[in-house]
Design a protein around this nucleic acid. Structure first.
Ligand SMILES: [Zn+2]
Ligand SMILES: [Zn+2]
Ligand SMILES: [Zn+2]
Ligand SMILES: [Zn+2]
Lengths: 138, 138
DNA sequence: TAGCAATTTGATATTAAGTATCAATAAGGA
DNA sequence: TCCTTATTGATACTTAATATCAAATTGCTA
């Protein structure tokens, strides 16, 4: 998912209707970039009900358009997924920016662990917390 | 952290007071075993205020006695850490049981990723979701 | 072991994330 | 255009968690 239209295409392809509300939310996400909370989207779109924002964000998650990110301490952020691919997160604990990475090597090791433990793996998450180059005081 | 007393020792060692409330919460956790919610602890200890349960659970987390586990979908569970060591989680999405594993190989790869990305890593979490041997219908 | 300062607690209020309900509205295919 | 179905908004509700602050408890020490 790279361009705003990709979201709208994903909606149609999956049998969801293309509504003004969903377009508006999508626009906010692409205009904003970076991590966001439901509050931020809601504030940016005063005409749209909170419940609908939640619904839309969840739908976009299901479509792989955005990821949900658990911050340290339990707060939740969402962010546009740069692609629909499986990936992991660098989470800057200073500014909140989330960067994605892919590591086939780690994924292999994860699968191996699951096999060794007789665990039928369905999904996994890997989150790295620290200070990104965005905020490092070199 | 293996025995109930370990928690009490950890409290003292870190300059926290050993109170009846903390002992009571600790006992509930060790008697119960397995994952728990704040509700469960609160129900088991009607005489203790909710806020104090939260405070105690957070304190025990800080001391490495329990882990917080994010379930798929965002629900939160806590569970006694079998040791104070760094570890990762198998999370059975059927029954909710959380099993720990340690994998130095993965941790190395994680550190390598962080170095390569100029990311000053402070901590990380790895959670595997699926069906454990506890619930596999072989 | 009585006294005291500092920590901890409970009650209460509040914030925040998220879901449930349901009538009214909008989308899109025929 | 019409009609069925999906979507929305308002509202209420649930659950997790934090803030406040006076009252109770702890650990220490004189
Ligand atoms: Zn940053
Ligand atoms: Zn992976
Ligand atoms: Zn299970
Ligand atoms: Zn690790």
């Amino acid at each position: 998912m790279r361009y705003p239209d990709d979201s709208l295409i994903a909606l149609k392809e999956n049998g969801y209707r293309l509504t003004a509300t969903r377009e508006a939310v999508n626009k906010v996400l692409y205009d904003h970039k970076g991590p966001f909370t439901i509050e931020m989207v809601s504030d940016a779109l005063p005409g749209i009900g909170r419940a609908t924002i939640f619904r839309t964000v969840r739908l976009f998650q299901d479509l792989g358009i955005i990821c949900r990110v658990n911050m340290e301490g339990g707060a939740v952020r969402y962010q546009l997924a740069s692609t629909g691919e499986h990936h992991h997160h660098f989470i800057c604990t200073v500014c909140g920016v989330v960067t994605e990475f892919i590591d086939a090597h780690i994924d292999q090791a994860v699968n191996r662990q699951a096999q060794g433990a007789d665990f039928e793996l369905n999904s996994h998450t890997i989150d790295l917390y620290g200070v990104g180059s965005c905020c490092s005081k070199k």
